[in-house]
């Protein structure tokens, strides 16, 4: 009954709003001439109208209540899981923090009392005290960890004191940590707070360890 498949395809493309203007005018011209196609096109349009008029049904009474009654009550576990899923960065940060505290406390006790000193030959070590002897000039930076520094001579560089105090000849007698006469230091003097430095130091180490893999 129909002319040819090509025009029928054009009709459908037209109905889907998926036709170029040239194709459309081609179809229009054809429909003017061909009665069969006209009929076909009319039937298609009518079919769509009919489909749209199909019976509408409504959900049974109480449908919403039924659904709400059947919803699973949220368990605490599910709530946590949802929270975790929504805050991945917080969770990662928490895990990182726990691991860090763990590694920190395990290393904290290991080397606390060990005295570490930079390697200048001029430095004299007396128990927990590092001494720059009088009349001696120490070249380069001095680093002292877990010990006190007594400067009688001169340090030609920066001094970093970690977990220790700077003593001078007077204060050694007094037993205090006065820094008043640190005049023998020709660079910057830095005394670092123990806990903060310790954490910072281990954060750096932790990352080094991570990236070593």
């Amino acid at each position: 009954m129909s002319c040819n498949e090509e025009y029928i395809k054009r009709m459908h493309d037209y109905l889907d709003g998926d036709i170029s203007t040239e194709e459309e005018s081609l179809l229009r011209r054809h429909l003017e001439d061909c009665e069969d196609c006209q009929k076909h096109f009319h039937e298609l349009n009518r079919t769509i109208t009919l489909i749209r008029s199909a019976e509408r049904v409504e959900a049974p009474v109480g449908f919403t209540e039924n659904v709400m009654g059947k919803l699973p009550t949220e368990k605490k576990r599910v709530k946590y899981k949802r929270w975790f899923k929504r805050h991945p960065i917080l969770v990662a940060a928490a895990i990182f923090f726990i691991l860090m505290i763990g590694s920190l406390s395990s290393t904290f006790n290991q080397g606390t009392d060990q005295l570490v000193v930079s390697t200048q030959e001029e430095l004299v070590i007396d128990g927990d005290t590092v001494i720059v002897p009088a009349g001696v000039t120490v070249p380069g930076d001095v680093y002292v960890k877990n010990g006190d520094l007594l400067v009688l001579g001169t340090v030609d560089g920066n001094v970093t004191l970690f977990n220790g105090e700077l003593l001078d000849s007077d204060s050694e007698l007094d037993g205090g940590g006065l820094m008043a006469s640190a005049g023998g230091v020709n660079g910057e003097l830095e005394t670092v707070d123990q806990t903060f430095e310790w954490i910072w130091y281990h954060i750096k180490n932790f990352f080094k360890g991570l990236f070593a893999f």
Binding site: V57, A59, F63, T64, V67, M68
Partner: peptide, 23 residues
Amino acid sequence: KGDQSAFSDVVSFYQNKIYQHCY
């Protein structure tokens, strides 16, 4: 956010459409 009761508005809005579709 965990507000279960808000879902009832969603259900009542779509119930006829979805029921009809299933039917």
